[in-house]
Amino acid sequence: MKKVLIVLTNVTRYQGTNDPTGLWLGEATEFAETIQEAGIGVDYVSPKGGFVPLDPRSMKYTNESIMKFYETADFQKRALTNSLRPNEINPDDYLAIYYTGGHGVMWDFPNDRSLQQIALSIYDNGGYVTSVCHGVAGLLNIKDDAGRYLIAGKSITGFTTAEEIIAGKKSVVPFLNKQAVEKRGGKFKKKRAYKEYAIQDDRLITGQNPFSPRAVARLLLENVR
């Protein structure tokens, strides 16, 4: 059976600052756990491969299921220590790609051509391109063979401007997700700040915030089971 490819960041700091960032832990663990409970395997990839840092703020917003998954040897080894490099990935092995969040992704996801090509290949094979929260950054610059943005004309969600303000990060992020999506012809959708919300448009599935990874996973499973 094909697997789901989970994309993680290698960025350790907000660019231009000393403030640490990285993967938002629950956005990886809750999605992966839901997918694996359905009998589908996952692999982990990052732009550089290898070490994946954790956003320390995400450790304040854990629950028992997040911590149990985080403590497994499989997650610590395959996700946080030895994530795959893009050149180790065969897109034919995957039914979907899922971009996790954490503010770090805003710097290493948008312009990674290798990841873009993997995502486009999965999509062209009839698979799904999915994201949660800031992971929408990975979708922004994917273009089809005609040079059209994949998100153009599609309903997309991600971490909102209101949520950036509440998080105190509006002044340090390199772009705002709503503006970036709309600039590429996407239709940005949102609900209340920090409430679970995920939407599907064709074979694009996106979630708004850290409370939405399981909702993204459930939508994906509705399509592939």
Rank of each mutant, 00 (worst) to 15 (best):
T130G: 08
V136C: 11
N141K: 14
M59Q: 14
D145A: 11
Q117S: 14
G168E: 08
S83H: 09
L140D: 07
G50W: 12
S83N: 12
A162I: 07
R148C: 05
N209F: 11
A119Y: 00
V216F: 04
A162D: 15
S131R: 06
I205T: 06
I122S: 01
P47D: 07
Q179K: 13
H134V: 09
V52C: 07
L25I: 14
I89C: 03
R203E: 04
Q117G: 13
N87I: 09
V216K: 03
F188R: 04
E33Y: 08
T157S: 10
T160G: 03
F211G: 00
Y99D: 00
T161E: 15
I151F: 02
D93P: 00
T9R: 06
T17Y: 06
I205C: 06
L8G: 04
Q76E: 11
D19M: 14
E30P: 00
M59K: 15
Y44Q: 04
D55S: 09
A193F: 07
I66D: 02
K195Q: 15
D74S: 15
K48C: 07
E37N: 15
H134K: 08
Q117C: 03
K191G: 13
L120Q: 07
I165E: 15
L8E: 03
S171R: 14
A198H: 04
M59V: 08
G147S: 10
G147V: 13
I40N: 00
D112M: 01
E182N: 11
A215F: 03
L80D: 06
